[in-house]
Design a binder for these strands. Structure first.
Lengths: 231, 231
DNA sequence: CCGCCGAATTGATCTGTATCAACTGCCTTT
DNA sequence: AAAGGCAGTTGATACAGATCAATTCGGCGG
């Protein structure tokens, strides 16, 4: 964990998309003093499930895996976080999932109490955080359907399409889809084993739907992928 | 769908637990005019996934199933709703799941716009709704772990314990656990088939953990159930 | 009280995915 | 360039849970 130099919210990479997007110039000035940039190396844990929440985080750069562990070590990844995502909202004062850096990561960290005080008398910010929570809830429900009712092939196809959609809305369109997470991460996100994910990837490649490339895939036939993803 | 007579919030059954619990006497008076009681018969659909959201609902009496359907008819129940639960929060103006009455149900229905206006200048209510969303999000994540990483036996045991816990916090402790939903509902909640649920129930009964009774189960050995539910 | 009907249970078999085990290929280290 | 190691792939086999098929149970109408 490294703490880089000071910064300015006004030229932050996620200024337009993150929670802070609803703040006006004056508020931003004040807000600036609440957060500090912190970097994590690949594989480092930013916070753990059992930890008492003392900070919120705005992901600025990199990708994170958010997950829960069972006592015997089985892992379920509940989400991948991308730049602009806000982490740490919780009940009962404890994080209810863990968060690791996948590759190098930079976050904007806020002390919980100071952040809470700042939100206190800014209902528009609260409203935005609420919308965020509801959006995540909706995503989580889609994920429930995926885990509970879809086959391995549907799971993988859906994952690739959704992941691509997120990257597109972040970086713009492209048919090559980088996959910074490894096969085990994908398996733990989809409720599968690493072998099944691998086999499904090769099957999709043989069908001409994707091409497996270094650090990701190339989506050769999006329409076909959509057909495999739906029912 | 039947619309019963007028009512008073002050003697509402869910007054203490529902969203309206954060309202003071004066606010409640005003709030009263926003909601109207509506009843649904067993099996009726209160709202559907694709519907444009025009109302929010406070469940007053009965149990509901909240679910999503795949195009080919596969169903995933994302939650069961109990009295005091608030339904309808969404993004993009559309419900993102459907809601059926299991047995007879009474809800307190609010027009979305009027409710929105009421919340507008009452940050404490917004804060409560936010907390609600975050609590649901946390629950949804637990459900993800259940669906993605647990065996049939663990799923069923966990479901019974969680369902009992919800009923306990609503009606007080008891070792007989009513199950108003049918086996298909349980199966669709747990990502299993009806046969697997049934077999798992009988296995748990043979193990002396539960007894299957009319309309529910009796939890004979809670400690053993907890052991089966964990890993 | 009888017969009907949907829900639940039980049984037999099948299959998708897990598990166990090797192998491959790529990056890293020296 | 060789060696080591980890991520990913591929193969063989096992098995949990799905599917297909009766059968039983319990509530309800006549």
């Amino acid at each position: 964990m490294i703490e880089p130099d000071g910064h300015f919210c006004s030229d932050c990479a996620v200024r337009a998309t993150a929670v802070c997007s609803s703040l006006d110039r004056a508020e931003l000035k004040e807000f600036e003093r609440l957060g500090r940039r912190v970097s994590f190396a690949a594989g480092e844990t930013v916070f753990s499930e059992e930890d008492i929440t003392t900070s919120f985080y705005n992901l600025l750069e990199g990708v994170m895996r958010l997950y829960k562990l069972l006592p015997d070590g089985r892992r379920q990844i509940v989400d991948f976080a991308l730049p602009g995502d806000f982490l740490g909202m919780n009940i009962a004062g404890r994080h209810n999932f863990s968060a690791d850096a996948i590759g190098a990561v930079t976050v904007c960290q806020f002390a919980k109490t100071a952040f809470g005080r700042f939100v206190e008398d800014r209902p528009h910010l609260l409203r935005q955080i609420n919308e965020l929570a509801i959006r995540e809830l909706s995503q989580a429900r889609d994920h429930l359907v995926l885990l509970g009712r879809r086959s391995a092939e549907e799971k993988v196809a859906t994952f690739l399409l959704n992941w691509r959609a997120r990257l597109v809305s972040l970086r713009g369109s492209s048919d090559t889809v980088p996959l910074p997470m490894n096969r085990q991460d994908i398996a733990d996100y989809l409720g599968l084993t690493i072998e099944t994910v691998s086999r499904t990837f090769t099957r999709l490649e043989r069908l001409g739907v994707i091409e497996i490339i270094q650090g990701g895939i190339s989506l050769l036939d999006p329409a076909r992928a959509k057909a495999l993803a739906a029912a």
